[in-house]
Design a protein around this nucleic acid. Structure first.
Lengths: 155, 155
DNA sequence: AAACAAGTTTACGTTAACGTAAAGCAATAG
DNA sequence: CTATTGCTTTACGTTAACGTAAACTTGTTT
């Protein structure tokens, strides 16, 4: 049958503790079967775990994630009402994600303008008195992209 | 001088409780002055509050947000070392935001494919047996964009 | 057989981000 | 004057998401 996983395999793959994985099961995000008393995770469980992690990174609570999973399962044999409910939940989530996208681009603009200020300050320090030893200048990002923003400032 | 705000003004504008705002001050995210014993917020405080809220929506902890504010302040009279530290912190945040962007687009794809499945299931129900009354069909999103994804599935 | 690794359950501890009183000052309305 | 409204401090309570420890089973290695 399609591949299965042990709890420690999943733990190391996704860099979680086994405690967390069992906790997710307790919260009904995962439904592993048992061989004896040992948990056996299907690839469906693995996918759900991955989705759970992504959801978490996006600030969703475990309860919200669980709700989506449940709705999704009910969708299979869903009545019209269920399907419409699911659709509205999906719309909710979409809206939340759109808002997050906006937030991210705003904060990215903030960070870029902050970065520019930092680099300017550094230049000025280098002209006036290049005293402190410079470990190594990083060309990390910046990339002469142009100065997009200007309106979004911190102070 | 430039405008000031009361705690309840800010609370209603950003839909927070005054408790939260005072808590943010306790965590040194805000530094209002006092008229008598009453807090007076500057427009700088207001901006910081807005940034705090955005940061929170993105999953940053109050401690992290505070760290960025502090670094930013030190940047003004910053030594080279401080400036470089700030730059590296900025890079950290940028990386985190990039990851979040990816997460969001992944989840959006999931949601869209889920939505498509829902709508198909609805169509099938409508063909086979349109029994339940339909309150009102929503044209909300969908927009015949095409079926972009297909690889990312839940089950 | 003894020990070790990997898994299990049970249960109390911890941190972050507030909620929720309780009790008191200050100004203004009636 | 006193009543209400808005602000304040102090402090204990709460929820989510695990961490941590203890004590036990099961299988495997030496």
């Amino acid at each position: 049958m399609s591949k299965t996983y042990s709890i420690s395999e999943l733990a190391s793959e996704f860099d979680l503790t086994t405690r967390s994985i069992r906790f997710y099961e307790d919260q009904e995000l995962l439904h592993p079967t048992r061989r004896g008393q040992t948990r056996v995770y299907s690839s469906k469980d693995r996918v759900r775990l991955k989705l759970t992690i992504r959801g978490k990174r996006l600030g969703f609570s475990l309860a919200e994630i669980r709700e989506l999973f449940e709705l999704w399962d009910e969708t299979r044999s869903g009545s019209k009402k269920q399907l419409h409910l699911m659709l509205s939940k999906i719309a909710e989530r979409k809206a939340a994600l759109d808002q997050q996208m906006k937030d991210i681009t705003m904060v990215q603009l903030e960070l870029e303008s902050a970065e520019i200020r930092c680099r300017q300050a550094l230049e000025e320090l280098n002209e006036k008195g290049p005293h402190e030893t410079q470990t190594e200048d990083e060309r990390t990002s910046t990339s002469e992209k142009t100065a997009t923003s200007s309106s979004a400032t911190m102070h």
